[in-house]
Nucleic acid binder design. Structure first.
Lengths: 118, 118
DNA sequence: CTAGGACCTGACGCTAACGTCAGGTGCAAA
DNA sequence: TTTGCACCTGACGTTAGCGTCAGGTCCTAG
């Protein structure tokens, strides 16, 4: 499929797709006229990137993890990278929980005052 | 305390502290010579900011939430803001879990292959 | 064959959260 | 009083992840 179709199906902009390719995250063949041609599997791949981006990974980091993603992470180094990334994610999740808890304190404190007023 | 001391105690750079003040997140008095003077409570405040930053909030967003933080969020709008922010956090946490799960699949798949080799 | 929408390659623009000078002042110790 | 480190105010630099022209080509329907 061409880039516009991939953009529609994966829900990102054409510009973003070209950027991903530039960063080495996506591959494509070219038509005789020089237009990009993507595999159908690129749709899932791009969606996966979105998930990783949402989780706070950078393009560079995703590119580093790509061999693990494509080959399944066979070497020890790749295993270690996946592990450390998962730990980093766990750390980030904990931070979010912390922030959420802090907000909860504010919310419930305010509710308490509202109740006092009654 | 002065800005360098605050930086040390809160673990952020002097530049960052000036930036926070510029964004309306921090207040300070000035000495006769024009140097910033901070309350001791600023240390916790800055650490709280770090927590919120880590959770993905922007300076602007934190500034919007400040009235809730300082007064405890009394008005309905403030309550609504805190609630919606907490929901946004929950959403982000879910995204992180999703990403973590995707990584797990890769890791365990690889382990499975390692076992096959045995 | 032609219109015109999709695509191409630069290349500059943008925002956030600071980093990093530069050039000058405050302040506390000796 | 003289160091000399801490602090001050600009103001430009940096990075990521695209957005957005500009100017030109491809492709396909009619």
């Amino acid at each position: 499929m061409r880039i516009g179709e991939l953009a529609r199906q994966s829900g990102v902009s054409v510009r973003a797709l070209r950027y991903y390719e530039e960063q080495g995250l996506l591959e494509s063949t070219r038509t005789a006229g020089g237009q990009r041609e993507f595999e159908n599997s690129a749709v899932d791949r791009v969606r996966f990137f979105q998930t990783l981006y949402a989780a706070g990974l950078s393009s560079r980091r995703i590119a580093e993890l790509l061999p693990c993603i494509d080959t399944g992470g066979t070497t020890k180094e790749q295993q270690a990278m996946l592990q450390s990334e998962r730990e980093a994610l766990a750390h980030r999740i904990a931070e979010l929980h912390e922030a959420s808890a802090r907000l909860d304190v504010l919310i419930t404190a305010s509710n308490a005052r509202s109740l006092e007023a009654v």
